[in-house]
Structures are given as C-alpha cells and as structure tokens.
C-alpha cells in the first residue's frame, strides 16, 4: 500500500531534509520499518526499547490517532496519509 508520510522538523535531519515520504507498507509498524530501511536511525526515534510508540510521539492515519485504533498494527491502504507529530502541544482552557 502506498502512503504519504509527513515528517516533523526534528526528524528531517534523518530523512535528508525530506518533509514528506512516499512509503509502501501494510501496517503502521511496517511503515516505521520501511522508513528505517531507507533512513537508518529513524525507528529508534519513534519507538522505545520495547518496540512501542514513544510517549512523546503521536502517529495519525488520516487524522486518526493510532492509539485509538490498532497502534502499530493499524492497517494501511493505498492513499492513506500518515502524520508523525511530537506530542508536546496543547494546554487549552
């Protein structure tokens, strides 16, 4: 499945400054692995030692937080848009 992945600024030094990647993957977990294969060092920024999504990283598939769905197992289909966004933000009131 071909997906568009948006890369946040702090990670772009690992992707040769690319802000967007086009990646073939069946799940979010596969997608992280596929980016790692192309840009070594990427996965360790996204995943912790246990292979889970880091606390300060949010991953969205078509605007939906994958924590609401299948996490790394969330399936991807052609044309899905994936956003990786550092979790620090917010604070309304």
């Amino acid at each position: 499945m071909n997906c568009k992945v948006r890369i946040p600024t702090p990670l772009r030094r690992l992707t040769g400054n690319a802000a967007e990647l086009s990646i073939e993957a069946a799940t979010v977990g596969d997608l992280v692995g596929a980016i790692e294969a192309r840009h070594p060092g990427f996965a360790s920024k996204i995943l912790d030692e246990k292979g889970q999504i880091r606390r300060f990283i949010n991953i969205y598939v078509n605007q939906e937080d994958v924590r609401f769905g299948g996490g790394l197992g969330t399936p991807l289909k052609d044309g899905d848009e994936v956003s990786i966004i550092p979790a620090i933000a917010g604070g309304a009131g």
Partner: peptide, 22 residues
C-alpha cells in the same frame, strides 16, 4: 480541540509563527 491542536502543530512546523502553546 485535539484535532485542532494536531493541525496547529503541523502549521507551526511550516510557518514561522509564534504558537504560544506549541
């Protein structure tokens, strides 16, 4: 709000604006 916030985080990443809470 969470969706607005996610959009704002992406905008903050692209525009040179001072997002007070980002």
């Amino acid at each position: 709000y969470d969706e607005v916030n996610r959009l704002a985080s992406e905008v903050a990443d692209h525009y040179g604006w001072a997002f007070v809470n980002i």
